[in-house]
Design a protein around this nucleic acid. Structure first.
Lengths: 155, 155, 155, 155
DNA sequence: TTTT
DNA sequence: TTTT
């Protein structure tokens, strides 16, 4: 009934942009979110959380996000499952983002500007999508997005 | 750096209370969270999200939550992994709750009361835990909580 | 850059539905949100938070919400100010809701159904609006919504 | 019953640190949070939201936050009221923060580091306080924190 | 001006 | 398989 997630962390790799057969953009990346500091402080721990974005937001993320960038993500948890090649049911959890904020400019060095800097800030994650068109599961067993049937994609 | 989740849904089963070897309570349950309306509206879809609570909150959840109850959960996403018996790395995602609100009374029939009804409302989820003591992974491959080394549990 | 609020509480009164000159619906109500338990536990305390909804969501809220109902609200904080009749600047803070969940059915007695019960659940708060059309300030000095210029209302 | 706010914005001024008669630290500042894009895009609009932090978190914020810094705040909405000198009831809304993240380093120029930079990162907002000790109202009519009776402050 |  |  209500499902909201807000994360701040850093990209572990450059984002990956794919397209469904019908040409719908989907971008995936992983956010490393440091845990509140651990007891023994042995090693600094993080959760690695898979993020999925769709359509215009996917394009923007692919264009402007890069490995290591501090990023805020707003969205919802999606859990899907499939049976892998060994006939075993696998559960996959991702965050379907509908709002992404770039907290570090691309021109490293001076980042009093958030977003892309230079004042020519793009729409960068302003788009908010909700509803069925975000209900997809773009990852395969190997972690790469799959080809999604366009029947699943409303307008 | 920041990791916050808020969910409202219904328990798919009664909660399960376990104890670590040192006697720390951990309760797990699954929340069915209806998705915002789906495309063809074919069947009503939901995400099934695993929730973990610790200590006093675990005891309270075990005592008062039941299958089917409408419940609000606040916490953070935790991703852990382990190598299963086939030597395959498995990733598990759970929500470590630090705040649980009972939105339906136990006396089914009249539920204008939230919490436990009867006025003798317990502390019911008021406790907020943070820090390392919530950093555990109580589920096994089969979805049941494992026995957790108490070394991992600060105070 | 990011502004998100999630509340669960009870309506202090029936919601009020108004219309802008151009006929845009705006519904306002106040949510009583109990505070996490107070020190001396003298009296149970709550925060009374003003909520504003627009358009279809406003209509749905006006139709289905009533005084006392347990309700979840998702939205953003908006702060506006105006100079009152004494020439004093007054600051007003509201939550502009884009998602409202009815946690108690209207047919009091049996509420295993959320929303309106009876299966004929309406769209009830599924609509998510964002952007400038929510940037209005519908309250007057006396707490009643004002007539809003339709110039401020995009499509 | 549930009251959670997450904000990302910039300080409009340096934070102000005060102490209650009993020596409890309270720091206040205002966060400018840009609104999602405005109608005519005439001028860039923002909400100016008052933030209150207590105790250790107050000290940390006072030490490390400065005007203009990009900052994430997690907390809850608090609404209080008082009668001003003209005998008029005034309502004040603030966010009582229990988690503050410094998204820009203090050594302006190179801010790939979050927090305080230099590796000597302090505890910086890790502390999470809940319960009655955050239920205070440190602002006066003129926006400055008042002296708070220590009776109101549990331990 | 406040809800259960 | 992980970021600073």
């Amino acid at each position: 009934m209500l499902n909201r997630v807000i994360l701040i962390g850093r990209l572990t790799r450059d984002p990956e942009l794919r397209y469904t057969p019908a040409g719908v953009a989907v971008t995936t990346f992983t956010l490393a979110v440091d845990r509140p500091f651990t007891n023994q402080q042995k090693e600094r721990e993080a959760d690695f959380i898979n993020i999925v974005t769709w359509r215009q937001l996917a394009e923007t993320c692919a264009n402007y996000l890069r490995k290591g960038r501090l990023t805020a993500v707003e969205g919802r948890i999606q859990v899907r499952n499939y049976d892998n090649n060994e006939g075993r049911r696998v559960y996959v959890t991702e965050v379907i983002a509908d709002n992404v904020r770039f907290l570090e400019s691309s021109n490293s060095g001076g980042n009093r500007e958030e977003g892309m800097g230079g004042g020519q800030a793009p729409s960068q994650g302003q788009q908010r999508y909700s509803g069925p068109r975000d209900n997809q599961d773009p990852f395969q067993d190997d972690g790469k997005p799959i080809d999604i049937s366009d029947d699943d994609l409303p307008f």
